[in-house]
Design a protein around this nucleic acid. Structure first.
Lengths: 270, 270
DNA sequence: AAACTAAGTTTCACATACTGGAACCACTAG
DNA sequence: CTAGTGGTTCCAGTATGTGAAACTTAGTTT
């Protein structure tokens, strides 16, 4: 809904292309026809055809001959399980998120960074029961969300540079920081302050405070945010929650680190 | 825990190999070192190295330079999400599963077929609160589980033939059907009867009734099962639940079909 | 400190297997 | 029957992926 064209980096090799096709299918969010994918113009007919075939053979896509359309396959669903468990903070953070949500009574987000984009991996709604995976998994822009900025602010220089190239800087509201320059200034402030705000930068009326989740060595693992509306509360009162959030973040970090934890989004330089 | 070596079909092309590597990493269930993967002996050193590199570049894997290990990457998590949403029955079935679980008070499983293996996509434990994704995602053998047999029984000939090749027929208990012949006979019976049992074929003491979830056109979408133990109940009393389960299956099928629905596991013939 | 070993990375000549234009098929519509 | 759309197959050319082997780092041992 927000997110610009996949901004696929230089797709290396056949594998890269195949994965792009996977993305294309997944992004559509419903069974897609060959021609629809073709129309995207990313690949020549024959090539696209072959890639789809390969992915289907591999069970990463499923082809419905009746409707003549492709959808994500079962193998992907299976992979989903281990990916989710291992690589997201969600399982580790779950109890802490619960506690925080109960404490603050507002919507709480847990996010991680994926190729310069924010990936929401878990969420608690103020009231409703935990509706897990169906809520998580959304992606959003990093430069105009609390969690996004909180994470960007604590990246090291090279990581930040790379993340910045991936931003598309669309002006969602009149408060959106719509240039790298503005953003960089803001990030410095956030780094100094320790937490980030969303001042209706993404959606009017929506505000939030966000804190990064950092390892001992200050590596960014993810971010937490508490979101509300201008009607219900103000930035100042949200800011009062910072200590609580910080504590939660610290707990999650400690646990994640004491367990095992992979770096995300840091590829070999080349 | 049950599942034999990934039984990877003829890995076509580079993409196939890359996906195999993905599986290898995902299967390990924790960050893996290069050498561990190498030790599996599936690929020569250099090849494995390059594949890992590519996958890492693509964000499908994440490399932690500190621990020198690979884990599923954020991009995979993201893909996982859409796969889960679109291609599993889980989201559609959720309310119906809830209802059924509440009604019967036993453990309820929702499964689908993936390359001749059973993939559990959702589950309700008798008592405990819904612990969603963390429970789902497991795979198991098809030939000795209620859900597995229920689905196999309603496949058409060619699908069944393909699925049978994928089975490895390990004798788990003394009741396990350990040959294609025995299984085929059983499947005919199931098809006639409309539901399948698990008579302690997989684990001693564990029994269940299972029904397939079928489209109008009798295509297999998945299966439902109610599981219990020989201590708590008997096959006969489980059989009494069949009508309820059937009804739930029908509801799920109707909803899934009226929505959109992809075929799973049916690749183009070739 | 030199001599091993294990783990990871890079090279390079070779051929596999990917590419994509174009031709082909199967329908449906005009 | 002719044109058109949507999908599948061919095939020569070559880009790409292959994997044995050589090479770097660390980390141990003598």
């Amino acid at each position: 809904m927000d997110i610009a064209p996949p901004a696929t980096g230089a797709a290396d090799g056949t594998v890269g292309k195949a994965l792009d096709v996977l993305d294309m299918v997944a992004l559509h969010g419903r069974p897609v026809r060959f021609s629809e994918l073709l129309a995207e113009g990313r690949f020549p007919k024959a090539t696209l055809y072959r890639l789809l075939q390969t992915l289907t053979n591999q069970g990463m896509l499923a082809y419905d001959p009746e409707r003549q359309s492709y959808a994500p396959g079962m193998r992907l669903v299976r992979l989903a399980h281990s990916a989710w468990r291992q690589s997201s903070l969600a399982p580790v953070a779950r109890p802490h998120l619960d506690a925080l949500a109960a404490l603050v009574g507002e919507t709480v987000h847990l996010a991680q960074l994926d190729t310069g984009q924010v990936l929401y991996v878990d969420k608690r709604n103020a009231r409703q029961p935990v509706e897990m995976f169906s809520q998580a998994g959304k992606v959003g822009p990093a430069y105009c969300t609390g969690v996004g900025k909180a994470m960007l602010a604590f990246l090291d220089e090279s990581e930040l540079a790379r993340a910045l190239t991936r931003q598309s800087f669309h002006r969602f509201t009149q408060h959106t920081l719509a240039s790298p320059a503005e953003l960089t200034t803001e990030l410095t402030a956030i780094r100094a302050r320790g937490h980030a705000f969303d001042r209706e930068e993404h959606e009017p009326g929506i505000i939030c405070v966000a804190l990064p989740i950092l390892t001992q060595g200050n590596r960014v693992l993810g971010a937490l945010s508490v979101t509300s509306t201008t009607e219900r509360t103000s930035l100042t009162s949200l800011e009062a929650l910072v200590p609580k959030i910080k504590e939660t973040a610290a707990r999650i970090a400690a646990e994640a680190e004491s367990w095992r934890f992979p770096e995300q989004d840091t590829k070999g330089g080349r």
